[in-house]
């Protein structure tokens, strides 16, 4: 069973479901609200032993039966207005902390295994990832158009439209790109070992990397929840295919 947590409006979710169907992998789609507000679960720990289940339509799904999980959560869930404000805060954090622990405990691939900074929408999480990725790729960080950190978390963005910026996707351990990004693809191939290690350590195996090539290649940004709405269909298909292949191969992105 492949669990996809996201929205059917998301083109990548549509493509993942389609590709999973094609290879005969049963899927279950949970929206963010379903996941956080109405999905019964249990997680037990005794020493280093852990087990648990999710419940869907009255059926128990053992956590060990999951082949993979895709997290494409918009992160705008908020508990019911039936609670007063302080209770909503409490329920929000209790729910997130629980699901983080449950997903962390899974032995199957979780794409992506975001750190707690992502769950808490801490902008320094993205900055830290960019710094560590630049180091892994032996690249400098581009000073081009910094995200507006004061305005809050950089939301999922479409592929960078700037002329001097080129973007590629990483999915399931491979680089998926458009034709004009061959210089970036070559650089990533030459850094494959370091890049794979970064993916293992960060838990990020699905991302869009933006590069500035105005004066040599520089890393501009790494988007760990990339929006693909405006991408060509073959590119989205390539990302989904690589991701499903990665799941089937049991690629674990755990740190």
């Amino acid at each position: 069973m492949l669990l996809i947590c996201g929205s059917t409006d998301d083109r990548l979710v549509q493509e993942l479901m389609s590709e999973a169907r094609r290879v005969g992998l049963p899927t279950e789609l949970l929206t963010e609200t379903m996941l956080f507000a109405s999905c019964p679960f249990a997680l037990r720990r005794q020493g280093n032993s852990v087990h648990g289940f999710l419940q869907r339509d009255g059926q128990r799904l053992d956590l060990d039966a999951l082949r993979g999980v895709f997290l494409r959560l918009p992160r705008n869930w908020w508990p019911s207005a039936d609670f007063d404000l302080s209770d909503r805060f409490f329920v929000y954090h209790e729910t997130l902390a629980s699901w983080f622990a449950l997903l962390d405990s899974l032995r199957c691939p979780v794409i992506n295994r975001f750190g707690l900074g992502w769950w808490l929408q801490d902008i320094t999480y993205s900055l830290g990832l960019r710094t560590s990725l630049a180091r892994a790729l032996c690249l400098q960080i581009s000073a081009l158009e910094e995200p507006d950190l004061q305005a809050g978390w950089p939301r999922r963005s479409p592929r960078a439209p700037e002329v001097d910026v080129v973007s590629v996707y990483r999915s399931g351990g491979v680089t998926v790109s458009v034709a004009e990004a061959q210089d970036v693809v070559r650089h990533l191939a030459a850094s494959e070992q370091a890049l794979s290690q970064w993916e293992r350590e960060s838990g990020i195996t699905l991302s869009r990397m933006d590069f500035d090539r105005r004066s040599g290649l520089r890393l501009k940004w790494v988007d760990v929840s990339p929006k693909v709405d405006t991408e060509p269909q073959d590119l989205v298909h390539g990302i989904a295919t690589a991701a499903i292949r990665g799941v089937l191969a049991g690629r674990r992105a755990a740190a």
């Binding site: 997130l96 902390a97 629980s98 983080f100 962390d104 707690l116």
Partner: peptide, 9 residues
């Protein structure tokens, strides 16, 4: 310093 945000984690 995030680890105790999720106590079971």
């Amino acid at each position: 310093a995030y680890s105790n945000y999720s106590k079971p984690f």
